[in-house]
Amino acid sequence: MIRIRNLTKKFGELYAVKNLNMDIGAGEIFGFIGPNGAGKTTTIRMLSTLLDPDEGTAWIDGYCIQTHQEEVRRKIGYMPDYFGVYEGVTVWEYLEFFARAYKVPAKERNKIIDGCMALTDFTKLSSKLVSTLSKGMTQRLCLAKTLLHDPKVLILDEPASGLDPRARIEIRTLLKELSRMGKTIFLSSHILTELADVVDSIGILEKGSMVVNGNLEAISKAISSSSSSFTIFLSLFQGQKKEQAKELLEKFPNILKIEIQGDRLEIQYAGKEEEIYQILKHLTNHDIPITGMSREEKNLEDIFMQLTKGEVS
């Protein structure tokens, strides 16, 4: 649905985005992550035809963002990171304005507006003035506006920024619903825990270049397998015999570091994955009351921290 090839944007001598390449399939939710100044918004503005790339290009549903800008605009629903609203108009009038702007046929217009309001829970607020809405409501209203012309692709720049926890959950639920409706969603966010629950695939951008791009699980596994050691947590019954367990494991091969954390042990293991059971065997042979064992999973934040250096372009 979205294909990006060698997308580059320079501001003076500074590369805001450099040789960006990626493909996003239809119906996918793509999380676009990166530190401040990494080039996320620049990329999104190029995809939304608001900025012209200096080199390379992108296609949305087969239309080039440079040569077929009008067609691209019909295919996308764009929600910027910061946006304002028109004062003095009601929610219904605001949506009607954009429906007219997107040339929604007069016959269908009212039904579509009402449908979008129902989807974003605005039905009861249709006669409320837009200027009196809260930040969360305004975000939802903008999302409703992006749906009016039934776009195939939604490009959302930080849709959950500045929202309270309830509004974030509402937006997240809405995004999942939209994905179920077959929309491709290109989403940028700083709140990684929020993204982790929603996205199918991610792209991490740093200094204008793509650091990693692909399925979230695959990336997590690849990072885990590429590292030389991993962390294991051992839970002991009421923390009994933890000192003894520590002493036993210090003599065990391939164990780099052991720390006691309350009732459990944190073990840095550099051996083979298939030999972990030997640790358990060794401890149970010495009557250590083990109640559980877990391996540290890489979440989105860990991946982000591991792959980025916090540099800006």
Binding site: K107, M117, A118, D121
Partner: peptide, 24 residues
Amino acid sequence: MDKETMNQAQENALHPQNHGSFLE
């Protein structure tokens, strides 16, 4: 709210269109 509900909401539109083609 799923797609069916949205369609339902569209069906129950508060502002049905009765305009003739000229007015449209």
